[in-house]
Structures are given as C-alpha cells and as structure tokens.
Design a protein around this nucleic acid. Sequence first.
DNA 1: CGCAAGAAAAATTTATATATTTTTTGTAAT
DNA 2: ATTACAAAAAATATATAAATTTTTCTTGCG
Lengths: 239, 239
Amino acid sequence: MELTAASPLPAPSTQASHVYDRLREDLLSGRLAPSRKLQMRFLMETYQTGQTPLREALNRLTADGLVEVREQRGFYVKDVSRAELAELTKTRCWVEALALRESMAASTPEWEEQLVLAQHRLSRVPRSLSATEFADNPEWEKLHRIYHRTLIGQCGSQSLLAFCGQLADQLYRYRRLSISKAFPSRHVGDEHAAIMEAVLSGDADLAVNLLTAHYQQTADVILQDEAIFPELRRVAARG
Amino acid sequence: MELTAASPLPAPSTQASHVYDRLREDLLSGRLAPSRKLQMRFLMETYQTGQTPLREALNRLTADGLVEVREQRGFYVKDVSRAELAELTKTRCWVEALALRESMAASTPEWEEQLVLAQHRLSRVPRSLSATEFADNPEWEKLHRIYHRTLIGQCGSQSLLAFCGQLADQLYRYRRLSISKAFPSRHVGDEHAAIMEAVLSGDADLAVNLLTAHYQQTADVILQDEAIFPELRRVAARG
DNA sequence: CGCAAGAAAAATTTATATATTTTTTGTAAT
DNA sequence: ATTACAAAAAATATATAAATTTTTCTTGCG
C-alpha cells in the first residue's frame, strides 16, 4: 500500500493537524480501505509520529464521520454501504435544497458575482488529467468544492454550512472509491452551468430541482458499482 | 466553583467517556462558564484523571460545538453571543421543520404511538422542582429531549438527527445559562400538546409553524436576558 | 478421536509520567 | 512609552506502564 509520504517541512503548526490532514487525504482517496482497522503501531510507523497527535487526529476524523471508534477496541475506517450512500445523498439533497433557497432569498450582487466566478473557473479546468482514461484532477476537485460551497454560502448559517461540508466529504469518499466515475458519459459542466443560470434567474424551484438531480444521478451511478459494494451473491452466501 | 464530584463506580467502560460525560454536564449547566480557559492542570485535578482521556473528551466536545480549540493555545469553553443564539435558533427551525415534514411523510402507527407516549410522559412531570421559584428538573429535561427527538425521529436520516441533536445541545446550554427561563409565564406543556395534535391530524404546515414558533419564543426570551450577554454599553466602552 | 470450555499468553488499547516546544508574562533597556 | 530579552507557564509530543480484549493452547467430556 502506498500512503502519503512524510513530507519534511510544511508543518501546519501542530503535529496533530498535520497528521489529521494526511490521514484525511488517505481516507478520502481510499488508500485506507473501508472497515480497515487502524492500529496505533501501524499508524505511528506510517505517519512517523507519536500516539498523542494520532489520537487527536483520529478523534477529529471520527467527528467528521470518516473514522469509527469502538470503545476499547480501537479505531476503524468507516465502512461503506449502499444504504448509507443512499441516506447521505438523501440528506444532502434535503439540506442543500434548504440552504440554496435561503441563499437565494438572501441574494446579493456580490454573491452572484462570486457564483459566476466559481462556475467560470470550474469550467476552464478539465475534469480528468487524461483524455483517454479517467485521472483525478485535484485542481478540478478543489474548484468543484468551491463552486458547490458558494452556491449555498449565502444561507447565513455557519453550522448548516459545516454540516453540508461534512456530508460533502463523506460522499466525496464514495465517489473516489467508485471506479466507474460516470466519466465521460455525463456532462457535469453543463449541469453546473444550468444550476447557476437558474440561480441567477431567481427560479429557486428550478435551481433546487437541478441541484438535487445532480446529486442523485451521481449517487445512482455509484450505487451500481459492484466493485465498491459486496455483491449480493456473496452477502447471501455468507449468511 | 462546584463541579461534578468524582462518583465512585458507574464507569462507562473507558475513562475518556466518563470524563466526557462529566465535562459535558458541567459545560451544559454553565458550571464551566463561557469563554473560560480549560487548563489541563486544572482539569486533571478537578476530574482526577490523566491528560490522554482529557484530550479525548475535549476533542469530542469540540466536535459537539461546546468547546473551542485554538492551536497551541489550548481549549476554551465556547463563548456565547446574541448573534450565535439567533443563528443556532434559525438553523434549528429550518432543519427541524424539514425533519418534521419528512417524519410526517413517513409516518407509521408505531411512530404516532411513540409520540403520544412521549408527550403524555412529559406532561406528567413538573417543569420545575419547586412551585415558587424555578428549580431545574432533570427528569423533565430528559423527557423533553425524548419528546422533541421523537417528533423528528421518523425522518429516516441518522446524520440529520445527529445534527439536530448537536443544535439542541448547544441551545440547551443557552437555556441553562439564562436566568429568566420564561418560567412560569409560558405554557410549554400546551405547546407540546398542540404540536402533537397537529402531527396526528396530518397538518404539516401547522405542526411546523407551531414547532418553529416554540423555538423562536424560547430564543426571544433568552435574547432579552441581560445577565448572560455583555450589555451593549460595556461592549461600546471597550472599543 | 473430535469438539467445547476454560485458562494462560499475546497483542492492543488506554492511561500515566516525563520531556520538549511554544506561548505568554514580566523586566529591563533604549 | 515602546521594544527586546529572559523567565515562567502551558500546551504538545514521546516514552513507559497498566488494563482490557483477543487469540491460542490445553484440558475435559461426549
């Protein structure tokens, strides 16, 4: 297994935060596989650090919903399931629909300009680094995140935005875990543009419908990915 | 200051969980005052424990929004403000309105029975232990929590329920912090009954309106409590 | 002879104690 | 009065120890 290499200098203040960032990246990318046990000794060697910063990082990640802790039995990478994917998606659709409506109700010229900019920048970066096969483009992911965050950023509630961020992270892991990334069948660029248009035209119902469809379609593709979920046969055979 | 005494036997498995429970109670009750610094030495002596379980507990409480952590500067009790109270209340109204509608849309006879039971039990316990002055009744608080949780419990999203629980905790602290607890001016029992009636009659709009009004009124009372928020004069004099 | 139950051993998580940085505070000098 | 330096206080990290869980091995019974 290839995990993040121990980079030498850019220590973000505390070791705990540094380990948190690296662990988070390894969890989201799938390098640390779902339901895998996170043994202290292994983590200490891999990330070259002590257990105090490690526990700190693992506890934060537990709060983020990426790690699971069982009392006196250690930490585990949060498992994935079709049921959880469906529930997370459903919740995200509900909550972001709410946040988007509130954002639009509190719209300002500045916010609309931010949205136009975010959409434009996203449209100028390729989804994949390779034209023939899918190769994750970190720059696109970053701009994609900013775009969706901007969409709901005017809602006026920090706690709601933080919750949306958590849901986004958890669902992002499903996307990275899934091999068939709906590439290049979908035109996600067009979808982002259409949502923006609806927002700018003031049509909240349309904007919400487009946004939720956007999320639902992504989930539907991943739900059909046999590679990330145990096939039904095997589950039946086990029981 | 009188904090929770070190009770001898009921240790919930790990020391960290035990400290978490006691710290949480002291934070919610206000025994640990807002913006107070949580020094390790003080906490270790007060709760008679080491720093590993303490850090664990403080990190969990940070995720709950009751504690704030500043890099290399330690932990602090989350500060309170009128702005945050207003925002938390607004968010809770939005999100619980959503959860209540979804609960009603997914209603079952079992759930309705649970709700009837929860409301009945709550109505049978006095709000205050004393008839003349306000004396917090833990049993009422417990049943109150269960009632509100039941109301939205059928929504079908664990993560949404967890988020609602967090908001409830944070707002509960404001209530405990406030001296004028709207007692006995309001008839919260009637409000709880009215919400249940609306739910049972299937009138979602009415139920949501009653619920959000319920939360908003509580917040309005606390917002006028000069004792918990720094008076405007003092803020102006400082700057 | 195979299987289940119990006890000892190993592995691992959790907690304490010690050491190292970092931040803050107090003092002196410009 | 302000800045620089030094001492202290406190947070963070490492290393060591204790307690718990899991595994393995042995013993007894069918």
